[in-house]
């Protein structure tokens, strides 16, 4: 894989800040089965963040960055919002787009990358808030799906505009009152997962980020399907603890409460037929690879 390209010039190695040295020494670039279990034993691709203490967005970032299958050949596209405070500390190429434009930028980027690097896998992953995805950027979001653009769209759904102090968003629940939405939401939470399916997404998941193993699975699936087949969409509940009046340590419980069977973030998944076939092929290959590794270990 391409980790070979990520080397520090020997004669200037000692002056590089330690975070870069650590990234080169022990980050999991190039590791085939990288995942959330690497957290704690390898250098993470996020250095620090300036989100509120305990913000579930930070957990989501850590799990996603640990799970991207091909981080050295991935470009992430972000948008304005709390997520954009994190990207400067992320060791994956990323572009900050004008608020709402993320899926348009990603469309052009994905096409340009396939022209510039034919024959090399280059993944594009959009990561933006619900305001950017569903309200101001809805046109760009949907048009990218209609056009079958081959990239993943991740929405950090915290059900309001957090970064600007709590305005109403399309993904806010009906009746919810926020600091800057005192009347209470008058209509239902927009059903973007269903809209995504109808708009041509081949893999759609609606869930919380309470379980790192689940985040890993859906990220890997979404990126692989987008790479080979067409658009994929993940809507991840990352509650804004600040705006819903929770303490730093209460984010996890909030997610657990919201993913119970009848709740709005109960796990929901849609996989198109071609995507199902691809996942089955990938699973078979994975099984083969693991069996071969086991056999090799037995011989040694």
């Amino acid at each position: 894989m391409s980790k070979e390209r990520i080397k520090i010039s020997e004669d200037l190695y000692d002056i590089m800040p330690s975070d870069y040295q650590d990234l080169v020494k022990s980050a999991t670039y190039g590791k085939e089965d990288r995942g959330w279990k690497d957290i704690g034993s390898s250098k993470e691709l996020i250095e620090q963040h300036s989100l509120c203490a305990g913000c579930p967005e930070s957990m989501a970032f850590r799990y996603i960055l640990a799970s991207l299958p091909n981080p050295e050949d991935t470009v992430m596209v972000g948008s304005t919002g709390c997520t954009s405070l994190v990207f400067p500390m992320v060791a994956v190429h990323n572009i900050h787009s004008l608020f709402g434009n993320q899926n348009a930028i990603a469309s052009g980027l994905k096409r340009a990358l396939s022209v510039r690097f034919p024959g090399r896998v280059k993944d594009v992953v959009v990561l933006a808030g619900d305001g950017a995805t569903v309200d101001i950027g809805l046109d760009m979001t949907l048009q990218a799906w209609f056009r079958q653009e081959k990239f993943t769209t991740i929405c950090f759904d915290n059900e309001l505009y957090a970064n600007t102090g709590g305005q109403e968003s399309g993904l806010m629940q009906k009746g919810f009152v926020a600091k800057m939405a005192p009347v209470g939401k008058l209509f239902d939470k927009v059903r973007l997962p269903e809209i995504a399916r109808e708009s041509g997404c081949h893999y759609v998941v609606n869930c919380t980020v309470s379980k790192p193993s689940l985040v890993e699975k859906v990220i890997r699936n979404a990126v692989h399907i987008a790479r080979e087949i067409g658009p994929t969409y993940l809507q991840l509940y990352t509650p804004c603890i600040l705006e819903i009046g929770k303490n730093s340590m209460e984010g996890l419980q909030e997610m657990r409460d919201s993913e119970k069977p009848a709740e709005r973030f109960a796990y929901k998944e849609y996989v198109s037929e071609p995507a199902k076939q691809l996942l089955a092929e990938l699973a078979a290959k994975d099984k083969e690879r693991k069996a071969a590794a086991k056999q090799l270990a037995g011989q040694a």
Partner: peptide
């Protein structure tokens, strides 16, 4: 020049 992305850089 910090990153040895080719021989010339190093």
């Amino acid at each position: 020049v910090l990153w040895a992305w080719n021989e010339k850089a190093a």
